[in-house]
Simulated scan of single mutants.
Amino acid sequence: MADPDPIIEVRGLVTRFGERTIHDGLDLTVRRGEVLGLVGGSGSGKSVLMRTILGLLRPSAGTIRLLGADLAALSREKLVALRGRTGVLFQDAALFSTLTVAENAQVPMRERFNWPRSLLAEMACLKIALVGLPEDARDKYPSELSGGMRKRAGLARSIAIDPEVLFLDEPTAGLDPIAAAAFDELILQLSRTLGLTVVMITHDLDSLMRITDRVAALINGKAVVAPIDELRRLDDPWLRQYFGGPRGRAALEAGHLAG
């Protein structure tokens, strides 16, 4: 049975770099409004998959539909316009070091809209407040922010033009447990408040437990997709090691995987 209202559909995806095959007939459906975790071992192609879905990389074979559009059928202009309906938070936040937090948040708005400076400033303030940064953060530069604040500033920029889909690449990497938990709650809150669909690459088991509806594990070039409680019970060597290793056992003992 087909998933209702898919926002991303990947069918038969093959991705190769030279003689190395990363994805080999990968299928993936992301449902509108869900938070999907994306996990896999080193070199399994998590970031490659994200970039391919965004149309930044061209697959060797297969089809990708994003927000109802077949990427292969789009002109460059239409592909750029489609990307404007998505937001991306990279692992290091990728902020412009010479711009303030407010100016960083305005970058996507300036690229897409011909708004007056007063409206740009007003909208930037709104996004900054949405991600939980204090007012005095607006005029600070990335170098003046803590790691958690930089993540939030990057998130403010990624939601600047009200995307329908938000892609997160290791959003809690480098954060202490308290800051990571707070960031998880922020993602969940924004997803519910703004109606975002979220695709999140992560190694953080606690994040997976807290906020994902389903998890896609990239194994042997394909995606195994299920709610986390089902996924951890599958008879696969990588999944057994991932969920049964020290961090997985710690999460289980803490009650995150109970059930």
Score class of each variant (00 low, 15 high):
residue 1 M to Q: 10
residue 2 A to I: 15
residue 3 D to M: 13
residue 3 D to N: 10
residue 4 P to K: 01
residue 7 I to M: 01
residue 8 I to R: 00
residue 8 I to N: 03
residue 13 L to W: 06
residue 14 V to P: 03
residue 20 R to G: 14
residue 21 T to P: 04
residue 23 H to Y: 11
residue 26 L to S: 04
residue 33 G to P: 00
residue 38 L to K: 04
residue 41 G to F: 11
residue 42 S to R: 07
residue 44 S to R: 00
residue 54 L to H: 06
residue 57 L to W: 11
residue 58 R to F: 12
residue 58 R to M: 09
residue 59 P to M: 09
residue 60 S to W: 15
residue 61 A to F: 15
residue 65 R to S: 07
residue 65 R to K: 11
residue 67 L to G: 02
residue 67 L to K: 06
residue 68 G to T: 01
residue 69 A to L: 06
residue 70 D to N: 11
residue 70 D to P: 00
residue 72 A to V: 10
residue 72 A to N: 09
residue 74 L to A: 12
residue 75 S to Y: 12
residue 77 E to N: 10
residue 81 A to V: 11
residue 83 R to K: 11
residue 84 G to W: 08
residue 86 T to V: 07
residue 88 V to H: 02
residue 91 Q to N: 02
residue 93 A to V: 00
residue 97 S to H: 15
residue 98 T to D: 13
residue 102 A to S: 07
residue 107 V to H: 09
residue 110 R to S: 12
residue 113 F to S: 05
residue 114 N to S: 15
residue 118 S to I: 12
residue 119 L to S: 06
residue 125 C to A: 12
residue 126 L to R: 14
residue 128 I to H: 03
residue 128 I to V: 15
residue 129 A to R: 09
residue 132 G to P: 07
residue 132 G to V: 03
residue 135 E to S: 15
residue 139 D to N: 14
residue 141 Y to Q: 03
residue 143 S to H: 15
residue 145 L to N: 08
residue 145 L to S: 13
residue 146 S to A: 06
residue 148 G to K: 03
residue 151 K to C: 01
residue 153 A to P: 03
residue 153 A to F: 05
residue 154 G to M: 02
residue 158 S to G: 07
residue 163 P to V: 06
residue 164 E to T: 01
residue 164 E to G: 02
residue 165 V to L: 04
residue 168 L to W: 05
residue 171 P to L: 08
residue 174 G to N: 05
residue 175 L to W: 11
residue 176 D to E: 07
residue 178 I to E: 08
residue 180 A to L: 02
residue 186 L to H: 04
residue 187 I to R: 02
residue 188 L to N: 12
residue 190 L to A: 05
residue 193 T to V: 08
residue 194 L to H: 11
residue 200 M to D: 01
residue 200 M to F: 07
residue 201 I to Y: 00
residue 202 T to M: 00
residue 202 T to P: 02
residue 202 T to I: 04
residue 203 H to S: 04
residue 205 L to T: 00
residue 210 R to S: 09
residue 210 R to W: 10
residue 211 I to L: 00
residue 212 T to R: 03
residue 212 T to C: 01
residue 213 D to A: 06
residue 213 D to Y: 04
residue 214 R to T: 11
residue 215 V to I: 09
residue 216 A to C: 07
residue 216 A to R: 00
residue 217 A to L: 08
residue 218 L to V: 02
residue 225 V to H: 06
residue 225 V to G: 04
residue 226 A to H: 01
residue 229 D to F: 13
residue 233 R to I: 12
residue 235 D to M: 11
residue 235 D to I: 12
residue 237 P to L: 05
residue 241 Q to E: 14
residue 244 G to K: 07
residue 245 G to Y: 11
residue 246 P to F: 14
residue 246 P to M: 13
residue 249 R to G: 15
residue 250 A to H: 09
residue 251 A to Q: 04
residue 254 A to T: 10
residue 258 A to P: 04
